[in-house]
Nucleic acid binder design. Structure first.
Length: 116
DNA sequence: TTTATGGCTGTCA
DNA sequence: ATGACAGCCATAA
């Protein structure tokens, strides 16, 4: 298996506990920019007993995307809570706080030159 | 082979 | 502020 799913799984596996990533973010990290949906399909195709932290993947709003099939949304929310991820009053995760920043270190200087 | 669908996202009204 | 629409393209029929 060397297709896009492989890269997606690889990225998902790197999401640390207590943090979440959006479908779009994972897609970009997997070199599949703009193909957030593919990430959803990849996760939907995961085997039942997978060890991949699929529950750490949420939509752009910070909410849980429910599958047309089973009540996986509930499971996902429960798992996230178990990892101390908090939800706001609307059931959305404050991405400002819990979004995974790949490569971001504590006192690491930034190289971004934003408005320059 | 072609067609339909889908755990999304970013615009535009 | 919500609601609708089109566009990425991999998988399954």
């Amino acid at each position: 298996m060397d297709g896009p799913f492989r890269r997606i799984y690889s990225v998902v596996a790197r999401v640390p506990r207590g943090k979440v990533a959006t479908y779009g973010q994972v897609a970009r990290l997997a070199e599949l920019t703009g193909q957030a949906r593919i990430v959803g399909y990849a996760l939907a195709a995961l085997p039942p007993g997978t060890r991949l932290p699929w529950h750490r993947i949420v939509n752009a709003r910070g909410g849980i995307s429910q599958r047309t099939d089973g009540p996986y949304g509930h499971i996902q929310r429960a798992r996230l809570k178990k990892e101390r991820v908090r939800f706001d009053g609307r059931g959305l995760i404050p991405l400002e706080t819990f979004l995974w920043r790949p490569g971001a270190r504590f006192g690491e200087p930034r190289k971004d030159s934003h408005d320059h």
